[in-house]
Simulated assay, not measured.
Amino acid sequence: MTTSNDSQNQNLTVRIQDAHDRKSDGNDHFRLSNWNEALVLYRAGLNRLPKSIETSEKVTSLPEGDEYSEQEIQVTGEQTSAVNISTSESLEPGLTAEEELELTKLRAVLHANIAACHVKLNVEGEHKESVAACTEALKNNPSYEKALQRRASSNEAINTWSSLTAAQEDYETLKTLVQSPSQKAGIESKLSSLRPRLEAAQKNETAEMIDKMKGFGNSILGRFGLSTENFKLEPNGQGGYSMNFVK
């Protein structure tokens, strides 16, 4: 006689296999440069899996089965390493901890593949979608190198002060994960090229913010025949500034 747990396990097994099949079909489309078709299939595979669950177990390798090995959005190759994956107490009924970890790895791969599709589509807003998908992958596997690489790459493409800061943080994390000297050198090269861009973005966005504040201030002060030019900030010698009125 088939029990309820047996039925649930069989149903889950079918769903996991469906997810793998959709991922495989998505990989085929990806190799043919059919980015939208691959994206639909990766999302369909993800939708076949139970919702994300958090655990404190360890697995001994990074997620595998990723869709390609092109170099343009990778900083380094990926090495096998221990990965922390966080989960909660609510395992899917009848699921072992090992099976739950396998599900977590599969979720991470599908999210990372979705991010890769957004990178390839390369139109306005797609890099933000890539960042969001990589973030979901990293929730399932915080040490997933490809997801860190893709998120950093997409944040570089977004090219704002905040996104470049986030890219810098991901490259710093990657530097602690990769093993070989050549990998570390590649990431350090990325960081070196990123620093002047980060400084420039900070200066530009700060200047824009000050200009907007001046514009707002002038709209108020103009009612009184004044402008922000009538107020000068000068160092007070104590690490702060004093505001002086100038006619």
Rank of each mutant, 00 (worst) to 15 (best):
M1A: 05
T2M: 07
S4R: 04
S4W: 02
D6W: 01
S7W: 06
S7L: 15
N9G: 02
Q10T: 06
Q10K: 04
Q10A: 12
N11V: 11
L12Y: 02
V14S: 11
R15S: 13
Q17E: 15
A19R: 00
H20T: 07
D21E: 07
K23Q: 11
K23W: 04
S24L: 08
S24V: 10
G26M: 04
N27F: 04
H29K: 08
F30E: 09
R31Q: 15
L32F: 05
N34K: 10
N36A: 08
N36K: 10
E37C: 02
V40M: 12
Y42K: 06
A44T: 13
A44G: 13
G45M: 06
R48L: 09
R48E: 15
L49T: 07
P50T: 10
K51Y: 00
K51S: 14
K51T: 13
E57A: 15
K58S: 14
L62T: 12
L62H: 00
G65F: 10
E67Q: 08
E67K: 01
Y68S: 15
E70C: 06
V75D: 06
I85T: 14
S86P: 14
T87L: 15
S88F: 04
E89L: 11
L91A: 07
L95N: 04
A97N: 06
A97T: 14
A97D: 14
A97C: 05
E98H: 05
E99A: 08
L103F: 07
K105M: 08
A108L: 01
A108M: 00
H111N: 13
A112D: 11
A112L: 03
N113C: 11
N113L: 12
A115M: 02
A115L: 05
A115T: 05
A116E: 09
V119M: 11
V119T: 05
V123W: 02
G125S: 06
G125E: 03
H127G: 01
K128I: 13
S130R: 00
A132L: 13
A137I: 09
A137D: 10
A137P: 12
L138Y: 08
K139P: 12
P142Y: 03
K146P: 01
R150Q: 04
R151I: 09
A152E: 11
S153L: 09
S153E: 10
S154V: 10
N155K: 00
I158F: 04
N159A: 15
N159P: 03
S162V: 11
L164S: 03
D170P: 04
Y171R: 00
Y171L: 03
E172H: 04
S180V: 09
E188P: 02
L194E: 03
R197L: 14
E199H: 03
K203E: 15
A207R: 00
A207P: 02
I210V: 14
D211M: 07
K214Q: 15
K214E: 13
G215T: 14
G217E: 05
G217H: 03
N218P: 00
N218L: 05
S219Y: 09
S219H: 05
L221T: 09
R223I: 13
L226E: 15
L226F: 08
S227Q: 07
G237H: 02
G237T: 05
Q238F: 11
M243C: 12
F245N: 00
K247Q: 11
K247G: 11
K247T: 03
K247H: 04
